[in-house]
């Protein structure tokens, strides 16, 4: 079963990469952008077929390795 998770920076954490992307967009003519925040997306294929158990496994992975909870949040966004 494939679980998708995203990791995003917490609100108060400075995201210099997002800022530069926003400036580039601005330079390209996308003038309506207030803010860009960059994150990470993971697709993890686990052997578990029960969606709830599979989610739990990936959540554990997020807590222990994929996200640093000092600065990042994680969210399981899909199972398939």
């Amino acid at each position: 079963m494939k679980i998708s998770a995203i990791i995003t920076l917490k609100k108060d954490v400075l995201d210099p990469q997002g800022k530069v992307i926003q400036q580039a967009l601005d330079g390209m003519g996308f003038k309506d952008v207030d803010e860009v925040r960059q994150g990470k997306y993971f697709e993890i294929d686990v052997k578990e077929n029960d969606p709830n158990k599979a989610k739990e496994i990936v959540e554990e992975m997020c807590k222990k390795l994929l996200a640093n909870l000092v600065i990042e949040n994680y969210k399981i966004i899909g199972t398939q």
Binding site: V13, L14, P16, Q17, V20, N68, V70, I71
Partner: peptide, 11 residues
């Protein structure tokens, strides 16, 4: 040790 090290401010 507490905290974290982010990308340098001016990239």
């Amino acid at each position: 040790v507490p905290g974290v090290l982010l990308r340098n401010k001016y990239l």
